[in-house]
């Protein structure tokens, strides 16, 4: 297991957002985390990536304990994340957005005499081409269409050269066509680069299309984990998603 979340709980002023969560992600798999709004998906991402700390439990990555690490250290050990709400440097160009990520990855953000101009041009363009943004390199990120901003986020996350990619709603706000092409892109990249992917997604077609395994989070608890078929047929999952209909029958 590349990522191991054990007995992790977190509450916010009395509200239990994560309730004794256990989640294992195997190396190389594409693991979807689904659940109704407010189930705790983003909270779990925030705990794994170090944005917030858990009250109890442990999170380990490649057998390294993450709980005590700061977010930037977690990036260094090989976990990169994207955000549900677009999170780019809006006034900087797409090129510059990715460039900063390369600077950070190569630990050059403290170097005061290393000229930034033109640095990593080749690597940056390769990444932008990979995510289909070659033509947008010099557009300020804030002026890009929403779908493009999401792709840019993906490029920025990839620039960190992660082993594990955490994507929070990678297709949120996209049209159906964009969603499909974007999800194929993500699959190609993850498989092509031997990455591990943990993602949240609201579009169930996407989830069952690409995920190797699916975990369902509900009221802060993992209620089922398994391949698409198993999860779809899990009675607890059916009850949560289909609600009263199922419980009446």
């Amino acid at each position: 297991m590349i990522l191991n979340v054990e007995n992790t709980s977190r509450s916010f002023s009395g509200f239990l957002a994560l309730d004794n969560v256990n989640l294992q992600v195997a190396e190389g798999e594409m693991h979807a985390l689904i659940g109704p709004n407010g189930a705790g998906k983003t909270t779990l991402f925030n705990v794994i990536s170090g944005l917030i700390s858990a009250d109890t439990g442990t999170v380990s990555f490649k057998d390294r304990e993450l709980s005590r690490m700061k977010p930037h250290q977690i990036v260094e050990v090989g976990i990169a994340r994207s955000f549900q709400r677009v999170n780019v440097f809006p006034r900087n160009t797409a090129f510059e957005n990715v460039q900063v990520a390369f600077i950070a990855r190569n630990r050059e953000h403290f170097k005061i005499f290393a000229a930034a101009y033109g640095k990593y041009t080749q690597e940056i363009m390769e990444l932008l081409i990979l995510v289909g943004m070659a033509d947008d390199a010099s557009t300020p990120a804030g002026e890009l269409a929403h779908g493009k901003q999401k792709q840019l986020e993906l490029a920025v996350a990839l620039a960190a050269n992660p082993a594990l990619l955490l994507l929070d709603e990678p297709t949120a706000g996209m049209s159906i066509a964009e969603t499909m092409s974007s999800i194929e892109l993500i699959r190609d990249i993850v498989k092509g680069r031997n990455l591990t992917l943990l993602f949240t997604e609201h579009d169930m077609t996407v989830v069952f299309e690409i995920a190797d395994r699916v975990s369902v989070l509900h009221h802060g608890q993992i209620i089922a984990t398994g391949d698409g078929e198993t999860v779809r047929n899990d009675p607890e999952v059916r009850r949560v998603y289909l609600g009263t209909e199922e419980s009446e029958s």
Binding site: V100, I103, H109, K111, A116, Y117
Partner: peptide, 10 residues
């Protein structure tokens, strides 16, 4: 204009 400068802007 260094890489550190870019980090500050970021």
């Amino acid at each position: 204009t260094s890489t550190f400068g870019r980090a500050m802007i970021a």
